[in-house]
Design a protein around this nucleic acid. Structure first.
Lengths: 189, 189
DNA sequence: GAACTAATTTAACATTTGATAACTAGTTAA
DNA sequence: TTAACTAGTTATCAAATGTTAAATTAGTTC
C-alpha cells in the first residue's frame, strides 16, 4: 500500500489513511521515451505530472524560437498552471528530456476528492503554493542578475540540469542565446 | 451590509450570506499617507491587503539598490506570498505611492474561517491562483522581450502606473536602469 | 519669487549581448 | 567509407544596455 510519491506527499502535508488510499487510486504510472511530449501545445492542462525518474521541461515558441520555461526533476509538481486555473488551452508543452517514469493524476478526479478529503485539498494547495514561490524567486533572478549570474545560479540550484540537458534548451531558459551561453561557459572553465 | 470589496469578491467566487458576514467582520479599513510602508522589510507577511484607492508597490533591496517587484492598483490582492506561505520574514516591503485607502485582512483570522466557510477558502485560493498566473506571465515577459517591449507592455497593461508612479520605480520593475528607461521613452514620444 | 531639492533627461564611454557565419566534434544514414 | 546532420564553440561586428557625470526640469520650502 505504500507508494513512493505518497510518501513524498506526506512530508509536505499530512494525509489520513483513507485519503492516502483515495489518492493512490488516482496515480497512474507511465514510461515515456526520451524527447516525447507528455502534453502538447494547444491542449488544456487537465493532468498533473510528477517524475519518478528523468528530467522534463516546459517549453513554448516565441517568434518561432523554442523557449524553455522551466526544468523539472523527480518529485517536482509539473503543471501548466496558467492553463489549469483558467481552463484554457495552453500554448506550452511538457516534454521529457530522457527516458522517464512518470506519475500522472487527473485534476478532475483529484478535485472530486476535495470535498470528502480536505487533507488532499490542503496538500495540493501547498504544492501549488510552493510552485508559486519558486516562480516569484525566478522573477527576482531574471530581473536583476546578469546572464552569467543566472547561469551560476542554475549550476548551483539544478546541477543535474546542467549535466544532463542540451545547452540549447538551457540558453533560452536563462533568457539568452546559445552563443552567449557558450561565451559565459568559456570564461571560467 | 454591502461592502465594495465583498461585491468584488463575489465576482470572483460565490459566497454564502453567512460567509459574507464573517468576511465582512475581518476587513479593516485604514488611511495611509503617501510613501509610507504598509509592511516593512523583515516583517513576516500575516496580512493581506487590497487598495480602495491609490497605488502601491512591493520593493526590496538588491546590492543596495531599490528594486520594485510589482505595482498594485485598487482591488488587486497585495501580499508577499513567499513570506506568507513559508511563514518566514520577508525581505520585501509594501509601500503606498499615493495617499491611499487600504483594506486589510489578517491571514490568521481568515484561515480560521476556512473550516466553517469553504467558499471563503475557495475564494482566496482563486485569488492566489490569479496572482500565480500573473507571475508566470511576468516571467515570459522578462525572459524574451527587450526592455522597450517590456516598457510598452507596461504602458498597455498598467497605464495608470506609468502616469502616476515615479520613473525611478518603474525602471527597476522593468529590470533596467533609469537612464535606459529615459532613452526608451525619448525614442517615440 | 529665490533657493533648495528631487526627478528626469542627455551625453560620453565601457561592457554585455545579439546576429551571423565559420569551424569542430560527434552521430546517423546511405 | 563518405555525406549529411546536430550540438557546441569561436570570431566578428552591430545593437542594446550599463556606468558615470552633467544638464535640465519640476516641485517644495521659506
Amino acid at each position: 500500500m505504500s507508494h513512493t510519491l505518497i510518501t513524498y506527499f506526506k512530508q509536505i502535508s499530512q494525509l489520513s489513511e483513507s485519503s492516502e488510499e483515495a489518492l493512490h487510486a488516482l496515480i497512474y504510472t507511465q514510461s515515456i521515451p526520451k524527447n516525447q511530449d507528455l502534453q502538447h501545445i494547444g491542449q488544456t492542462c487537465k493532468t498533473l505530472y510528477f517524475l519518478k525518474t528523468g528530467i522534463a521541461r516546459i517549453y513554448y515558441f516565441h517568434d518561432g524560437n523554442d523557449v524553455t520555461e522551466g526544468f523539472y526533476e523527480p518529485f517536482c509538481l509539473i503543471a501548466r498552471a496558467e492553463s489549469l486555473f483558467a481552463g484554457a488551452p495552453s500554448k506550452k508543452a511538457i516534454q521529457v528530456l530522457e527516458d522517464a517514469e512518470v506519475w500522472s493524476i487527473s485534476t478532475q478526479e483529484l478535485i472530486a476528492l476535495y470535498d470528502d478529503h480536505r487533507d488532499i485539498e490542503r496538500l495540493f494547495t501547498r504544492l501549488f503554493e510552493r510552485a508559486y514561490v519558486q516562480t516569484i524567486q525566478r522573477i527576482e533572478n531574471l530581473q536583476f542578475h546578469t546572464a552569467e549570474e543566472r547561469y551560476r545560479l542554475l549550476a548551483h540550484e539544478q546541477p543535474e540540469v546542467l549535466r544532463r540537458v542540451p545547452l540549447k534548451y538551457i540558453a533560452s531558459f536563462l533568457g539568452i542565446t546559445q552563443v552567449s551561453l557558450s561565451r559565459i561557459r568559456a570564461k571560467k572553465n
